[in-house]
Simulated scan of single mutants.
Amino acid sequence: MACDDRDTPELPATCCCGDNGGIARADPIPHFSAMYSRLPSTYELLEALAAVPAPAPVPASASAVGATPWPQRAGRAFWLGFVVTLVATLIAAAGLVVWRLVLKHPLAPWSIRLTEALLVLSAACYAASGLMRLPGVLAILRNPLRWQAVQMDLDSAIENALLRRLGRIHPLQLQARQRRVALQLRLWEGMARTVGLLLALAPAALVLVSGLHPLPHQAQMKGSLLWLYAVMVVVGAAFYLYVHVQCSRPLRRLSHVLAEAAEINARLGAKRAGPAPSTEPAPAQ
């Protein structure tokens, strides 16, 4: 049965044949075959931003760190040694505490000497790791603008590579993903602020409650409350800093790159499409 547009003059886009017979399409969806591609997942985009480009964007002579590879390897080795010896020291100290306070056995002199040796070794590894990084830190302090420029060039190279990868994605897709990333960013930042504030205010709330309702042995608890307050403030600040560095900063950077890619693709699409035809009637002669 053939389609007849004269039967439905009010719906010029109506077709009565095929699987969609009788369904009017007054506003057909445009097809962007030349500009459409699969948008990678958010994890892939974050991994692309975290990856270091293979070709260095700046020559080695312009590096702000100014350290040869062997001090860097030595610094990493010393830092790994510090972590290992510190964990061993904590385990040995916990064993001594359990052996003396829980099991009620006397401590052997060699166990105390071993714990002290592990502690000294961890401190030595930490100091050596700092000394290996000292030339780079001094170079940064001598010329901080140069180091900042190198970091900006590295970030720009990574972001430009991701922008080229997103060059065939439709702007509406990029804008939708950018809004979702911005929502996750607000959720992470709000959670970090809330948890940090609760950790910082919990000891203050305990002090307020002890002032309203005196606690048993309150005079002996002042020092413990001060220590608790200091520990909670440090833990809250460390948690907020960790969330900011590990979650908020990558999401904020990804949101910025997605917004730039959407803007660039929209302008390129408009440039390919050319000027829109004028719908104004021609002036009467």
Rank of each mutant, 00 (worst) to 15 (best):
residue 113 R to Y: 08
residue 113 R to D: 05
residue 114 L to R: 02
residue 115 T to P: 00
residue 115 T to Q: 03
residue 115 T to L: 09
residue 117 A to K: 00
residue 118 L to M: 09
residue 120 V to M: 11
residue 120 V to P: 00
residue 120 V to H: 09
residue 121 L to V: 12
residue 122 S to A: 15
residue 122 S to Q: 05
residue 123 A to P: 00
residue 124 A to K: 00
residue 124 A to H: 01
residue 125 C to R: 02
residue 125 C to L: 06
residue 128 A to T: 07
residue 128 A to G: 10
residue 129 S to E: 05
residue 129 S to Q: 08
residue 130 G to V: 07
residue 131 L to M: 09
residue 132 M to R: 09
residue 132 M to W: 09
residue 134 L to C: 05
residue 134 L to I: 01
residue 135 P to N: 03
residue 136 G to F: 12
residue 137 V to S: 13
residue 138 L to N: 08
residue 139 A to E: 09
residue 139 A to K: 11
residue 140 I to R: 15
residue 141 L to S: 11
residue 141 L to V: 13
residue 142 R to S: 12
residue 142 R to D: 10
residue 143 N to Q: 12
residue 144 P to G: 05
residue 144 P to S: 04
residue 146 R to P: 00
residue 146 R to V: 05
residue 146 R to D: 02
residue 146 R to Y: 02
residue 146 R to K: 14
residue 147 W to N: 08
residue 147 W to A: 15
residue 147 W to M: 08
residue 147 W to H: 09
residue 148 Q to S: 07
residue 148 Q to W: 05
residue 148 Q to K: 12
residue 148 Q to T: 07
residue 149 A to L: 11
residue 149 A to R: 14
residue 150 V to T: 06
residue 150 V to Y: 04
residue 151 Q to C: 06
residue 152 M to T: 05
residue 152 M to P: 00
residue 153 D to C: 05
residue 153 D to I: 07
residue 153 D to F: 00
residue 154 L to M: 10
residue 155 D to A: 15
residue 155 D to N: 05
residue 155 D to E: 14
residue 155 D to F: 11
residue 156 S to W: 09
residue 156 S to M: 11
residue 156 S to G: 08
residue 157 A to W: 06
residue 157 A to Y: 04
residue 158 I to Q: 15
residue 159 E to D: 12
residue 159 E to L: 01
residue 160 N to T: 15
residue 162 L to A: 12
residue 162 L to G: 08
residue 163 L to I: 06
residue 164 R to G: 14
residue 164 R to Q: 15
residue 164 R to T: 13
residue 165 R to S: 09
residue 165 R to Q: 13
residue 165 R to P: 01
residue 167 G to A: 15
residue 168 R to T: 08
residue 169 I to S: 11
residue 169 I to R: 02
residue 170 H to N: 03
residue 170 H to S: 02
residue 171 P to Q: 06
residue 171 P to W: 06
residue 171 P to L: 02
residue 172 L to V: 13
residue 173 Q to S: 13
residue 174 L to E: 04
residue 174 L to S: 01
residue 175 Q to K: 12
residue 176 A to N: 09
residue 177 R to A: 13
residue 179 R to V: 05
residue 179 R to T: 14
residue 179 R to A: 15
residue 179 R to I: 04
residue 180 R to K: 15
residue 181 V to P: 07
residue 181 V to L: 04
residue 182 A to C: 07
residue 182 A to I: 03
residue 184 Q to C: 10
residue 184 Q to M: 15
residue 184 Q to V: 01
residue 185 L to E: 07
residue 185 L to K: 04
residue 185 L to C: 06
residue 185 L to V: 07
residue 186 R to V: 05
residue 187 L to H: 02
residue 189 E to A: 12
residue 189 E to S: 11
residue 189 E to Q: 13
residue 189 E to T: 11
